[in-house]
Structure formats: structure tokens, C-alpha cells
Write a protein that binds this DNA or RNA. Structure first.
Lengths: 196, 196, 196, 196
DNA sequence: TATGAATGAGAATTCATTCAT
DNA sequence: TATGAATGAATTCTCATTCAT
């Protein structure tokens, strides 16, 4: 991480990278602006040339991280896949991201305490987008006869749940499982159920 | 809430109720001991007659709330139910509790950052208990031929995910859904899958 | 000490004994009224039935202890002794008291920080009394030709100094010396000097 | 004092000077960090840029003051003096320092209660150094036949006593005496005794 | 533009003292 | 008279933010 930060020329970029590092390690409240500055290799005062306040820096960091996350999810090929394949890809992508960015994932998906109203609203908007996307997928799959005519909101809940659960497993334990394999099993369970 | 606190005679109880109120509204770090005292209708110093520190008060509040939660889940009849019925009861119970204790539920199930090591360990133990319980249910159901010979850890993940997801939905929106109905639909999806 | 306190019937007395115990162990600032109450075997509120405040309790304790100290010094036979014998008795008496009441001695003779103006003045008066006494002894001895026609204030300084020094030695180290012997040596030095 | 502080450019220095002022006037426990800051003419937070805590500031102040004290004592010519002259110089030096730093002297030489273990040990070491020095002087003087073959510890006690006494006289009264004169008289008494 | 020394508002906690019982 | 639960003023220390250089 240090190397990446050091190599980055753009100051704003360096600060954001340092913010990820420090906020995820310490949590919002325990993170010190000074440490962020040090990690970015700049002076404390310089932070305030690029960001108005701690909370604004945090918000921008979250927004940036979220964009990285969604970029990592959206494969170009997604439109040509079946519903089942799509679900598998989404679960796998999320799991991979969570595995690589354990602590960031927690803040991103669960630490609502530290968010101010502005960020909460922004986050709500993003989640709604996700929800809409999933619902479209479901509706398309239902129309195509691929799955039962199930409530699309229900499917979203199930998927969001699985995804959250994966994070929890990921964070609380050190479960060494292959993203590919887990995605396959979960998708199978969702598609076919567990009844004999 | 105010009325309930005012009616409570026992001081320790009043403080714990006030703590739930303030910690859940503000989050741990933004919660002020003074506000908790005011909410409890007592002096600031009195808090410290009953609890050693802010962190201890928080921990006791969490532990107490968890116990209330588990008490609300465990129906006496659980041993006579089929696996499917049991799952439905668990989901319903969790949803009901989460609906009634929205903000508490977030802290209880997701805000692990603010917990100190002691509390984290305690919580981890409780979760392991839950996990064990679910796994036993799964194994029994598999043995009885009720469900496929599925990995019991996988089922736990799925259930924990659904449960977490319900909370998220619950908190982010004001989704007016009947616990009974939701529990039925989710259980059906888990049992039978969504494939046509 | 505990036994003595327990045996004492008079409440005021018990509190004063407990105050000596706690103030000398903890120092004024670290002493807690609650601990004094506990040591005295009474309720915290009861302290305030007998003493107006912490500082007043401290003052009364000091005054009482000082009286005990001076009582221990004044032998009845003092008027029949020579100057040299008197000095020896005073040094010995002080040393014995300091040995038995190490911590009390420090507070009594040196901890002026914690004294309020009232107590400081009282203490000043007591010291002046001592000074006057010594000066009278010196003048008498000079008149009797027992010692050189030395400035009586100087002798007081020397004696007070020796006495303070004894306490310091006493407290800082654990010097195992016989009061009798030390008194003899010091008195000899003072009387005859150290020049060969 | 105020002027000296105001003239001092170095912040650390200003704080130490202010600390002497406030700690000696109020005593450790009654001294407020805020008052020290005000006296130093800086903000409260700035104190903590230079010193970690109240106790650390106090310790550094003591150590610094002690060094000033010992520097003031050690004349270069001390090795060429006779024992009697040396004693006279030491007493005079101590008296001069005590006169100029009345309240500081009390804390430095007598207020051991408020010192934490670390500082107590440091102080104990310094005192042992002094003791060793005096003992060497005594042994040399005995060997040279300058004084009686007296116990060197006894002489240390006597000297330490005189020195302590001087402070006490100094602080409790406003005795206007010439250091030179007092040193002469005391040294004479110690050397020759007071017996006619 | 970059800096970091200086700041002071704000928070947890303590404990002498009060007062209803 | 005796009590101890309740109190809140007072204190240390933190750290985001500012601003002179």
C-alpha cells in the first residue's frame, strides 16, 4: 500500500489512498487527520487544501470506493449471461472484492453510524440503483421463463442478504474458501432450494 | 420511550433504557454520557454509581439487548416443528424484533467496530451458539430426509444473510410488510428455490 | 490500628484515628472521605455530622497529632537536666516519635502544600513556641556558663535542622539505628564540634 | 517573574518557567494546567505539544531546577579549599539558592509526597550522590587530621539538617540575614561545637 | 501552494458534599 | 442521630481546524 501511495503523483489521489488505509484500519473516530497526512506523505495543513474537513474526506473516500466496487462487479459480458450465470458472477465478484478489501467492505456496506445525512442519502441512492438492476434481471428472467414468477423485491432481499452474510463470514472468521466454489453453491441453493 | 423510562423505578434499568435510546440514535462515539443521564432523568455522576465507564455501559446494554432478542426468538414449541416451520419461525421472530428495535438491531448485528475486544469475544461466542443451533437443525433435517444433503455451514450463511438483509431493508426504508408473510415467502424460496 | 479504631467508642475519636490512618497513607489529595468513613466503620454522611469538611477534618487531625507529639517530648524531669542532657532528650524523643509515626511525621513537619492559611498560622504559632523554649534553654545555659555565648536563634536552627534531617533519613531509607545512640552522637557533635 | 517569562522566546522554556511559578505557588495538586498555560502566555493545548502530561511537566521542572541548584553550588575552586571552607561554601550556596527560590526549594527538598515513583527514584539517586560527596569530603578531612575521626554519615546528617533547616527558616519567616554571615556562624558551630 | 505550531471547544470521569429517609 | 444515593462543579487531555510563514 505504501508503495502505491508513494508512486502516486497527484496529491488528491495520495490523500484518498491514505484515507482508505487509515480509516479502514482505525475506524472513522479513531482515525487521526495527522496520521492520514503522514501516510500520504504530506503536511497536516495540506489536507485542508484538498478537503474541507474530516467528514468530507471520509465521504469522498467512500464514494470513490463504492465506484471501484461497482466497476469491479460489472463485467461487460453480463448482458449475454443467463440469470443463473449473472447471479453467480455477482456473488463471486462481491466475494472477491470483500476478500481483497475486508475492512473497507465493512465500512462500505455496514458502518452507517459514521455517515452523515448527506452520505447516507447518497448511499441510499446507490443501493436503490442496485435494487433496480436486480429487479430488472429478475423480471427478465421471469419473462423468459427461467425462474418462477417470484416477487422481484424478494429476490433482491435474498441476494443482498447472501452478500452481506458473505462479508460477515469473511470478516469474523478467516474462512478459506474459493470465491468460484462458494458462488456456485450459493447460486445453486437460491435457484433450486434446499428441499430434497 | 420517554414514558417507559419515566415509569421505570429501578435506576439501573432506567439508565440502560436511556443508553439504548441514546446509543442507537447517536452511535457510540457521538453519544454523550450527559445526554444519557438527562434521558434517564438523573445526574451525570449517578451514571458512574451504576456503571464504571461509557464502554462498560455500552457493553451491558448490548448484552442485555441480545438476551432480550434471543428470548424473543425461542418458542417453546420449537422442538416439535418441522425444519421448514422452524426456519419460518426464526425469520419471523427476527423480523419482528428488528422492526420493533430498528436502530438497536443495527448495532446489535452489524456495528462491530465500536465493540471492544471483550464484547467482541462475547458476541462471537453468542454467534457461534446460533450457528451450532442452525447446523444441528440442518443435520437433523437432512437425516430425516426433509432437505437435500447440503453443507450445514452453507445453510447457516444463507439464513444469516437473509436475516441481516431483512434488517438492512428494514432500516433503510420504511417497508411495511407483514412479518408472517415475509417469513413465509423467504422460507419458501430457501426451501424450493426460485427456478421454475 | 484497626483494632484501636474498633475499640474506640467515641465517634469523633474514631473518625480522627481513621483520618490519621488514611491521610498518612494516601496523602491529603488522594485520601477519599469515603475511605475515611469506611476505616472509621461509619457511614459517609456521618463524617459531616462531626466535621464540616475534608479540610477541617485534616486540620483537626494535625492539631491533635501535634499535641500528642509535644506531649511525648516533654518529660517531667526536664527542668532538672543540664543543657546537654535536655538536648539529648529532645533529639531522642523526636527520633522515637518519627520512627513510630513515619508518615504522620512527614505531614506534620513538612507537607505545607496541603495546609490552608488557618492551619499554617496555627502551625507557625506552635513552632514559635518551640523556638522560644529552645531559646530560653540556650540563654539559661549561656548564663550558667555551660555553653559559649552563642546566638540562641542559631542554636534553634541547628537543632531544628538536625531534627528535620533525622526525619528525612528515617523516611527515605530504613536506617536501623538506636534513638539513644544517635541522640548521644548528635548531641556530642553539637556540643563539642567536629574539629580535631 | 512575568517579565522573565514574557522575554523568553523558546516555548518549552516559557512553559517550564510558568510551571515553576504555578506549581510552587499552588502545589502540584492545586495547580491547573490552564493556569500554567495562561502564565506561559500560550493556549492550553500547546502545553501538550511540549509535555505529555501534568506529571511529566512537573517532573521535568523538578529535574531542571535540581540541575540549576547543583550548578549553583559547585564552585570550581572547591578542590583547593579546606574542609571548613568547603562546608561554608556549601551552606552559603544553598542558602542563597533557597533565598532566591523560596517556594521551589520547598518542593525540591521536602515535598516528596507528590512525586511519582520515577521521580522519587531519580531524586533518591541525586541525594545519594550528594551524600557520597560529603562523605568523601569528611573522610579526606579526617585523614588530613582536620577533623575528629567522626562517622561520615553523622556529618552528612548534620549538614543535611542544617541545610533543610535553613529552608524552613527561610520559608516560614522572612529572616533577613546575610548568607555569608549565617554560613560562617553555622560552620563555626559545626566545627567547634557550642560548649564553652 | 505547503506547512505544522498553536489553538480551544468538548468529553469522560472524579469525589466532596448534600439531603431525603 | 445515621445513612448512602445522588449530584455537578471541576479537571485533564484530545484532536480537528486555523493561519502566519
Amino acid at each position: 500500500m505504501k508503495d502505491i501511495i508513494e508512486k502516486t503523483e497527484n496529491k488528491r489521489e495520495r490523500i484518498l489512498l491514505a484515507a482508505v488505509e487509515v480509516f479502514t484500519c482505525r475506524g472513522y473516530n479513531s482515525a487521526r487527520m495527522e496520521e492520514i497526512a503522514e501516510t500520504a506523505g504530506i503536511g497536516k495543513g495540506t489536507l485542508y487544501e484538498y478537503f474541507d474537513s474530516k467528514v468530507q474526506l471520509f465521504n469522498e473516500m467512500i464514494i470513490r470506493s463504492w465506484e471501484e466496487y461497482t466497476n469491479s462487479l460489472t463485467a461487460d459480458s453480463i448482458h449475454e449471461l443467463t440469470f443463473e450465470e449473472t447471479i453467480r458472477e455477482i456473488v463471486k465478484g462481491h466475494f472477491t472484492f470483500s476478500k481483497e478489501n475486508k475492512k473497507l467492505a465493512r465500512i462500505l456496506f455496514w458502518d452507517t453510524e459514521i455517515m452523515d445525512e448527506e452520505l447516507k442519502e447518497w448511499m441510499y441512492g446507490r443501493r436503490k440503483e442496485q435494487e433496480k438492476l436486480i429487479k430488472q434481471l429478475v423480471d427478465k428472467a421471469v419473462a423468459a421463463g427461467e425462474i418462477k414468477p417470484v416477487d422481484n423485491k424478494l429476490v433482491f432481499i435474498i441476494l443482498a442478504g447472501l452478500i452481506g452474510s458473505i462479508w460477515a463470514i469473511n470478516i469474523l472468521e478467516n474462512w478459506e474458501i474459493n470465491p468460484e466454489e462458494l458462488a456456485g453453491q450459493l447460486t445453486d441453493a437460491v435457484m433450486n432450494g434446499i428441499r430434497r
